[in-house]
């Protein structure tokens, strides 16, 4: 038999046997910069504190809040119904069943935005679905929902409606006292009339 045939046959066998030692390689390519950039400026990953408050109050079953702060912070204060998955443990297999689902809207929050953003990024990279960030985090939650600021009297109706909603939400979450809206007493308008000038009399 031709020596060349034997050589190539042996080469194929060796290469084929080498396949057993190759690790199964999954696609580890990094996300293209353009795609990352587009996702970075995509605002759809944010939900507002108002929206979260409304969904908690309405007991929306599709809402799943995840507090990514440490367990200590979580014990101190967190949103009602929120689960605690510290950012350090996010990739631990314990939480996989919570994260690999398609029917719930998972909302990450921390004190500010940064940890929640990091959690979102990791979840995104892991290929999980339906992840959001509560914009502004718990700091914003306190400013808007717990201690809403009354808008200026010149503000639009929408802002007053929002304030009313936030006030209500604040009572819901804090059990605080009802703050009755202050009646606006209309001041009597006094009209001062000019005195009629004396009309020139006489003439034709």
């Amino acid at each position: 038999m031709n020596l060349r045939y034997i050589f190539f046959a042996a080469l194929l066998v060796v290469l084929g046997a080498g396949l057993f030692f190759l690790p199964e390689k999954t696609n580890t390519n990094e996300m293209a910069p353009e795609k990352l950039h587009a996702e970075l400026f995509d605002q759809t990953r944010y939900v507002s504190t108002d929206e979260v408050a409304e969904r908690i109050i309405n007991q929306d079953p599709s809402l799943f809040l995840i507090d990514v702060r440490t367990a200590d912070y979580y014990a101190e204060y967190s949103l009602p119904g929120a689960a605690n998955i510290p950012l350090e443990d996010l990739l631990s297999p314990n939480w996989e069943d919570y994260l690999t689902q398609e029917y719930m809207d998972v909302v990450f929050f921390s004190n500010g935005d940064i940890y929640a953003e990091q959690a979102w990024m990791l979840a995104n990279r892991m290929g999980y679905k339906n992840f959001y960030i509560m914009k502004g985090g718990l700091n914003c939650w306190f400013e808007t929902i717990i201690k809403p600021v009354k808008p200026e009297s010149t503000a639009s109706n929408n802002e007053f409606d929002l304030y009313k909603f936030r006030n209500g939400a604040s009572q819901y979450f804090t059990g605080g006292e009802l703050i009755l809206s202050e009646e606006i007493v209309a001041e009597a308008i006094t009209v001062t009339r000019k005195k009629k000038k004396t009309v020139a009399s006489g003439g034709c």
Binding site: L12, A17, L19, F20, E24
Partner: peptide
């Protein structure tokens, strides 16, 4: 497994 299949295919072919 993929490796086993390809290796077997090589042996069969040869």
């Amino acid at each position: 497994s993929r490796a086993f299949f390809v290796f077997a295919l090589i042996l069969v072919a040869l």
